[in-house]
Structures are given as C-alpha cells and as structure tokens.
Design a protein around this nucleic acid. Structure first.
Lengths: 219, 219
DNA sequence: GACCGCCTCCACCGTCCGGTGGACCCGGCC
DNA sequence: GGCCGGGTCCACCGGACGGTGGAGGCGGTC
C-alpha cells in the first residue's frame, strides 16, 4: 500500500504544522494537503482526493461541520475525522450524523492520533473516550425519561379495549371513525374515551395523544 | 498503584486460561478470580472486589447481562467489560444501558485487550470498533426518519404565530386557553387553527399534535 | 348466589370545534 | 398608489366532543 493520504484542515498554521509533523513521522501516512478553513478544504480535498481529512470545527468562513456536510454531499470518499478542543453533546451528534468517521479531542496523544488516522482509513470509527461516553449517554438516557415512565405506568392501568381506543384517538381519529374501525357503537367509544380522561387525568383527546406518544417510541 | 485487579467470567475454562495469560502478562494487571457463570460471578466479585470484570454473555445458569444487572443493583464499584463473540444491536444497547463500561469482541487483539482493561479501570469507556459503529448508527438513524422530515418541512411553512398556536394545540390546550395564553381573541385562535388544518392537510387538532411531536426531537 | 370489573350501549345537554365568509390594519413590494 | 401576505378580529352554524347518569351482559372470585 502506498500509504494513507491525509489532508489537514485548521485555521491555526501552528496546529497544521504540528499535525503534519506528528502524522509525517509515521511511514505509512502522508500529509498531501492543508487548508485554513472549510472553503479551502473543499478545494484541497477535490484536488488531492485524500483518504482521510482531519477537520477542525471552529474556523472562519466555513466551519468544519458545514465543510463536512458539503464534502459528504459531493460524495467524497474521504473519511473525515473531526478534531476539536471541545466536545459538546450537540457537536458530537451533529458531526456523526453528518457522516464523520471519527471525533477526536485535541488533547489526544500523538501516537493515538496516528493510530486513529490509520484505523479510520480502514473504515473503522474512532472516537475519543469522552466522546464515546457521550454517545453511550445519548443512547442510554432516553431509556428512562421520567415523563416517559409516568406515561407508561399510567397507560399500563388501562384495559385492553381502552388502550386500543387510546391508540386510535392518538392517531387523530374521531369517535365515529374509531367506532367504525373497532366495530363498536359510537356510545361505547365515548364511554371508553371518558374512562381515558379519568384514568389519565386529562380533559381532552390531544392530551391522551401526548401520553400515548410519550410512552411509545422515543426508542 | 498496586495494579488493576481483574475477575474473568466465562464458562469455557480454556478461554479463562487464555485471558489469564494475556492479562497476567502485563505487570500492572492481576487476575484475582474466575467464574464459570453469572451466579458464581456474583460471589467472586463480592469476595474479591475487583476493579474490572471481564464478562462473557453466553453462559449457563445466569448469563452475563443478567449478572451485570445484578452487580449494578448491588452497587458494585467494579467496572464491567462485556466480552462476546457476537455483537447484535440489541445486546450492545442492553449491555450499555445496564451500565457496562466496555463492550469488546473476542477477536480483539491481546494487546488491545490489555489496553482496554487499563482504560476501563481509569473510568474510560472502551468499545470495539464495530460496536462503536453500531452505536453511531443508533444515534444517526432516527435523525432523518422520513415521517419526521416530512413533519419538519410542513411545519417550516407555518408562520411564527401559527407555530406558536400549533405548539399550544399540541400541549392539549383548548382554543380559549390558547387565546388567554397568547393574549389573543378566541376568533383569532380559531383562524390560526384553521390555517394549520389547511397547511398541514389535517382535519383535527390531534393530528396537528402528531406533526409537532414528530418534528420535535424524539431521537 | 352475590359481587365486581370490563365491555357494550343509550339519552340528554352544554360546550367546543371546525367550516364559511367576511372585515380591518399593517408593512413590504412593484 | 395598488397589491399581497400576515395578523387580528367578527358572526353563524352544524357537528363533534365531553360530562352525567343510567342499563344489560359476561366472566371470574369469594
């Protein structure tokens, strides 16, 4: 293999020089280009067609996230590692949703940085430990949300029939439509809906829909 | 530091021996106990109070996930690394939600395994690359759900005022309540609600609530 | 058998909702 | 100026909704 071709994007010339040195020290890595902002990055990547892009987030003109989006939209084959000093929840999720293959903090040890580039070049993801933690938190958190648990317990007290009606209500059906779809009389549906209000302690059907949706997905 | 104390849990004696050898080769790691199933694991962990537990999933009597849950319930300070041959989506999420600090595949290189144990002992998470990928997929997938994007685009066409009204509607307020809370006449609210029906192509307020909730986070 | 919970349905009534067809004001644009 | 879109309001009406107080049937439990 000829080695992994890397482009470094950061508005700080000193940082670029440092990265060039760190990565250049590895025989199978080659820094083939640099850019000082997202706009430049688009050009350089288009010209050099690198395997990996190390992308800073905070940059003038076009930031790293926007540049990542643009690159992906253009169907680049380059894998992008977002490299930043901060790791706010939002940024991490945004970056990954934009298709970043890695998310590293700038305090990453030089040796680890080299490993990260190599792994990402092979198609593996690479996240800093704290970023991994955030990811775990993101998938773990919603599991017991408080509001969601309350909704679940309240809905659990409903009878089967009531749950069916509640589902129909939260799908936006009118009483008449519900009656038809469940083969019931409208009067019966009204009774069930009334029970729902009492048991869920609400006063109208929109609030029933809220409970059902809260309890449902979110995943 | 006296070294990281590790307990190895796997129903295969050969695997236990192998792990003991790999980990024992590192001067700062010490395998202080073994268990052949989840039940035993509870005892051994209670007795040895290790820093890290390497836990297989597929085991007789009590599997690794159940054991992990039990340990966490007992307030163990030990950090648990789930170690398995398979990495189904579900298992990964379950394990992490149960509080596992790591999730490694059994094809992990010995050197990486040692590193993983050391990092986990320090409180960092450690996931195999493919597991990380799954996690990323899990947070990325819901981002553009189709239904959600549709809801977003439709809601984007609303005027500011209409959006406010839509929010109120989806919180289960009646027109009168909305009028009060936005300092409007009831007639105005009705006009806005009517516009909502037209623009969102629905016929009642529950369906408006659906759109608003769909467009919101979920994630 | 008596009791209870659930499901089914009925009648009555006041309120709210949703549809229609207006009105006026304002700010921006041609 | 004329026009248009957004925001604010009005009146009217039929139908849907929500509240109340019933009724009968059916299966399970004590």
């Amino acid at each position: 293999m000829a080695g992994v071709r890397v482009v470094v994007v950061d508005d700080d010339a000193l940082v670029r020089a440092g990265l060039r040195m760190i990565l250049g020290g590895s025989p199978d890595l080659e820094v083939v280009g640099e850019a000082a902002d997202g706009q430049e990055a688009l050009d350089v990547v288009a010209r050099e067609l690198p395997d990996v892009v190390l992308m800073d987030i905070r940059m003038p003109r076009m930031d790293g996230l926007a540049a990542t989006r643009r690159l992906r939209e253009r169907g680049t084959t380059a894998r992008i590692i977002v490299l930043t000093t901060f790791d706010t929840d939002e940024m991490v999720l945004t970056a990954l949703q934009l298709g970043a293959a890695g998310f590293l903090l700038k305090d990453t040890a030089p040796a680890d940085l080299v490993v990260a580039v190599q792994r990402v070049a092979l198609g593996e993801p690479m996240l800093s430990p704290s970023v991994t933690s955030q990811l775990i938190a993101a998938v773990t958190r919603p599991a017991d949300d408080g509001r969601r648990r309350k909704a679940r317990t309240l809905l659990a007290r409903l009878t089967d029939r009531e749950r069916e009606v509640a589902d129909a209500v939260s799908n936006g059906l009118t009483n008449t439509e519900i009656a038809r779809s469940l083969h019931l009389g409208v009067a019966t549906v009204k009774t069930h809906v009334g029970s729902l209000f009492t048991k869920l302690e609400v006063t109208n059907r929109v609030q029933v829909a809220r409970y059902v949706h809260d309890a449902a997905d979110d995943r």
